[in-house]
Nucleic acid binder design. Structure first.
Length: 256
DNA sequence: GTTGAGCGTT
């Protein structure tokens, strides 16, 4: 089952919209909704071909933008056993009571939604959303494990989510941080004459800052973006300058 | 125009 790439739909297009659209051509296995594009899986590749032929370049949605529909490029789009759970296939080894949840709709999903979603599987102690992912902490490992099994690839607000064990359990979070400056002596790697990191740590992908206001530059305005329909202002245009890296200009002024 | 976001701070 190959993945079909779908692009150029409106930003408020939902997974179910695509599901509905593609289901006319065959059984939809799943839709992996990303931002601005999505991957659709039809059980039958023949049906997929069919869908591609019929849907590519076809006006869709309120704005009647022309969809881009084609076979997904890249390895992940090809057959290769499908660990296409959206995960990096290197899910976490070590079970933790805190689960890492990703791929929900970062704009609409709230803590309460996630909480409600995981609640049936145990006592949820804490839910935190950060950017495009969330952490759900359970009281016990059993609950967490059970919850993971039950919710991985389940839908939250219409989006299929990936659930994994978090790298760090909420419990064990940085107890060692500012514990006490130089106690014991596990700081042998810190006393180098150089600063911690001399070179600017390359940020990983410039992942969008969901939840936070991304200064202009995120999402080009192809025209009026406020009258799409619905509420013109979700309140996220506030905070004009959220970034500290506001001045990326060469004002490095090496201390003189 | 777009091809798979990935581990957090009180």
């Amino acid at each position: 089952m190959r993945a079909i790439f779908v692009g150029n739909f409106e930003n408020d297009t939902r997974q179910s919209d695509l599901e509905r659209l593609f289901s006319k051509f065959g059984k939809v296995d799943r839709v992996d909704m990303k931002t601005g594009f999505a991957f659709v899986y039809l059980d039958n590749d023949r049906d997929a071909e069919d869908a591609i032929h019929h849907l590519d370049d076809r006006p869709f949605g309120y704005d009647r933008r022309r969809l881009s529909v084609e076979w997904a490029r890249g390895e992940r789009g090809r057959e290769r056993g499908h660990h296409l759970d959206g995960s990096k296939s290197v899910a976490n080894q070590r079970p933790t009571k805190t689960l890492f949840v990703i791929n929900f709709d970062p704009l609409r999903t709230r803590v309460s939604d996630i909480e409600r979603h995981f609640d049936p599987y145990g006592k949820v102690l804490n839910v935190r959303i950060r950017r495009n992912f969330a952490f759900v902490q359970f009281d016990t490992q059993e609950e967490a494990t059970k919850a993971l099994a039950a919710t991985h690839l389940s839908k939250i607000l219409d989006r299929v989510v990936s659930v994994e064990y978090a790298l760090r359990d909420d419990d064990e979070r940085g107890e060692r941080r500012y514990d006490s400056p130089r106690r014991g002596g596990y700081g042998r790697h810190v006393d180098s004459p150089y600063r911690r990191s001399p070179s600017p740590v390359y940020r990983r992908r410039p992942s969008p800052d969901y939840g936070r206001a991304r200064s202009p530059a995120y999402g080009r305005y192809n025209g009026p973006v406020y009258d799409r329909r619905r509420s013109p202002d979700y309140g996220r245009n506030a905070s004009p300058e959220y970034g500290r890296y506001r001045s990326r200009s060469p004002i490095r002024r090496s201390r003189t």
